[in-house]
Design a protein around this nucleic acid. Structure first.
Lengths: 356, 356
DNA sequence: CTGTTAGCGCTTTCAT
DNA sequence: ATGAAAGCGCTAACAG
């Protein structure tokens, strides 16, 4: 007779209790409130459990009875491979994971594939609440989350009735960094995140920010436009290179195209440091001096920005991740009521006027 | 009277059934087996549900009753921030996520923080099985997973009784790539992953592979030693620079140290393409020609390897992730019985002898 | 410190 | 096509 038989023969607390000759409640307390049980009894119960191969209370049963799952759901509006390729998404998730670890919470990832089953996966997730990583205005998953009546926070928008919102004022930040990027420039250009779920890419001119359905993209485009206009530049002539994904390789390719054009840009404002790194690489290849021939700005002040001398917008995605997780786990959505997270301009050597 | 009152007043299927004037079972079928219910009744039930703000069956109750959670657990032996910073870990996770999406499974991430609570978090996770991303021989979480008697697969080791194992033969692959790296070299060096959970870093000489408790590190060190010995080089004189984390920045720093030494290495075998990229950067800064003055090899043939002209070991972490997930979800651990995943040497321009 | 009772919300039988 | 009964495994609430 093997103790660890192969069959997934489930051992229950009742069996353990019977074997230890105690009531089921005593066995239960042994696990959930050890202090309430005498040393001797506890030993007896654990011995019986070990003999039977009982590994602790069933999580589903416990969740049902307690009314909470001790798990947080994180909705990523992308296939996992893309989401993890974004260093800032990683930092954001790490912030969430910190809070979860502190509170002994699990973390369920809900990657959105774009298929109709996405909403169902969200509805069926055994979680106590949700954090949604940046998505588009028209993401059907948002309605599903709204419908389940569990605490949820959306990072960076869109705002959804009943859900919390955390992030920075992207328009204001883009305007501020855009002024540095475009200062003294004649032909500014923008390297953009995708404008909508279709994720079309290519260079457009005079792109209307309002047409973008990703709030982050929309707000940053609007901010860049504000900056251009304030500097007396015509937005309708600004080339906007839209990339399907936020990564260095695509950005470099797009920057190569921009820089090869007749009216070569003399300033490029990118939407992330990764993209800006691609621009710097393309500029280096084409032997254009930064910032004299091309000024470049990033966004996020990620780990690579310092080494690259990148003028950028500093914000803490890690702290924002923690704020999202706390708001959800504390069921305090009121603490997540807007895009008011702190940000700051970090001037370095990639823009004209030097680092201040 | 608001329909969507704030209070987390849980709506149950029984209430929906009552309102729709049908039995609880009919209401249940409406969700779990719509075909078994007439069109008219289904509409009636859904209408009642909408009126009450019922968002579908409670996941915990369903899990308890059905005996499965429809969620897969993924154990990462690192803080999330580090795990996500490793592009190959991201690819591996993406592979797992693919399989989960196909089968309408959720994905719970269990980051290991190194604290005693880790094992508990694993035990309490409401998942049907586990995939464990590379860890050390002495990771206490392995015993916890073994104890819960649910299907589990460990990627790249260590082997654990009753758990599946997926990965490549790292020693053989390291030996093969090491021969290319060290061919024609006099002073080979190695850039290594951490040897144990302590994650000490620094340059060591003649490091005994057997002392490493991370199987991947141990096997690759052993393979590099095999290669060195076969080429008539003395392992006891080989400098091994151990990095605490697998990333480009740390690797570049370590490579800088190696290259600044009196006996400058003329070949560096790294344990990942990220590390190799760091070596290339350090070599470029120091103006050493690759491969003539320094040959460099990577590992994994990741997205960056091609662009860098890196000679490396190709393997598909994505496919391995899928294999792990399938083995667990099919409860077919037998299909994951060893380190026999395919790998191949990809010769490029970073090693002497050119690309073949 | 330990035990009894009740029931979390759902779905698997097995009827009708 | 619909329904009644039973119980998944556990723990809150209340005794003793």
């Amino acid at each position: 007779m093997t103790t660890t038989a192969d069959g997934a023969r489930r051992v229950t607390l009742a069996q353990v209790a019977a074997r230890a000759r105690v009531s089921v409640m005593t066995a239960s307390y042994t696990y959930s409130r050890p202090a309430r049980v005498s040393e001797a009894t506890r030993t007896k119960v654990l011995k019986a459990a070990a003999e039977l191969g009982y590994a602790g209370p069933d999580p589903s049963a416990r969740s049902l009875r307690r009314g909470r799952t001790a798990t947080l759901g994180v909705v990523l509006g992308e296939r996992l491979g893309y989401a993890f390729a974004d260093p800032q998404a990683a930092v954001f998730l790490a912030g969430i994971a910190d809070v979860c670890a502190d509170r002994e919470y699990g973390l369920t990832i809900l990657p959105i594939t774009g298929s109709p089953g996405d909403a169902d996966r969200v509805r069926r997730a055994a979680v106590d609440g949700f954090v949604v990583w940046t998505t588009s205005d028209d993401d059907p998953v948002l309605a599903a989350i709204q419908a389940v009546h569990r605490p949820a926070v959306v990072h960076s928008g869109p705002p959804v009735d009943g859900l919390g919102l955390v992030g920075i004022d992207n328009r204001a930040a883009a305007r501020a960094i855009g002024r540095l990027a475009f200062a003294g420039a004649q032909r500014p250009a923008v390297l953009s995140f995708p404008t909508d779920r279709g994720r079309g890419s290519g260079v457009r001119t005079g792109l209307d920010p309002a047409t973008a359905t990703f709030p982050v993209t929309r707000d940053r485009l609007a901010g860049f436009r504000d900056a251009a206009v304030e500097l007396g530049l015509s937005w309708s002539e600004v080339n906007v290179a839209v990339c399907a994904r936020n990564n260095r390789v695509e950005a470099e390719q797009a920057a190569r195209e921009l820089l090869a054009a007749d009216a070569r840009p003399d300033a490029v404002a990118a939407m992330s440091d990764e993209q800006a790194a691609g621009v710097l690489a393309a500029a280096a290849t084409a032997r254009y001096a930064v910032p004299d021939q091309v000024a470049v700005t990033g966004f996020d002040d990620s780990a690579i920005a310092h080494g690259l001398g990148l003028t950028t917008v500093a914000q803490s995605l890690g702290e924002q991740g923690r704020a999202c997780a706390r708001a959800v786990l504390d069921d305090d959505i009121a603490s997540a009521r807007g895009l008011d997270a702190p940000w700051a301009i970090v001037g370095r050597s990639s823009t004209r006027g030097g680092s201040t």
